[in-house]
Amino acid sequence: MPVFHTKTIESILEPVAQQISHLVIMHEEGEVDGKAIPDLTVPVAAVQAAVSNLVRVGKETVQTTEDQVMKRDMPPAFIKVENSCSKLVQAAQMLKADPYSVPARDYLIDGSRGILSGTSDLLLTFDEAEVQTCLCVQGQLHFLEQANEFSPFFSLSSGMTKMSKMIEERQQELTHQEHRQMLISSMNTVKELLPVLISAIKIFVTTKSSHGAGVEEAERNRRFTFEKMSAEINEIIRVLQLTTWDEDAWA
């Protein structure tokens, strides 16, 4: 079972995660055998510099982006990474004084894990871009549902094309096979529903403008197709927001 949600995040963080696991095992052995850890001031300073850089770049992104999710979710990730880095600094100071210090080893492991987790949180905030596109299509769909003419359909069509492309790229990025299949299946349903929706809108608009019989039925049919499509897009959004850690809750 993959630990990280996307291949990009996995490629960045999985090697570090493995090393931390290794360190945890050694730490457990160390508690028994009392092995020493030398001065880690220099590598900790390198982590500190990298953290400062990430926080700086991240804060610039938060200031310039219009993505509200990013604005909301990035700052807690910065705090997590910065607090974890402080633990590493403390660990290095403690180890300098006592290379056998058990609390220092705990700080070292907690700090490394926190850096990993905070960086993962930060990278996950980017995953919301696809959700925004889906929400935009939902908005267009809602607008079209209220309209009594066909012209707003063209903006929906271009939004759908963008969404389809993003979902295609996204499913290739996911590490969970089930999530990939769910995205593919829902996107295929949306694609199949599109011509049905065009037809339903056309029939409704034509019937209504000619004051012909069957307006109510055409409207019902159109509403049914809208609802079906909307439900499928909601399902896509739900799957896009699933992460590894949600899986138990979702199951």
């Binding site: 290794h22 982590v47 490394s112």
Partner: peptide, 29 residues
Amino acid sequence: EQILEAAKSIAAATSALVKSASAAQRELV
């Protein structure tokens, strides 16, 4: 892109740190 690069740097620095701690311990076994 900048954030991805910064995240890669953090991963590399953390990796180097953990390696130093682990390797030092291994030497002393």
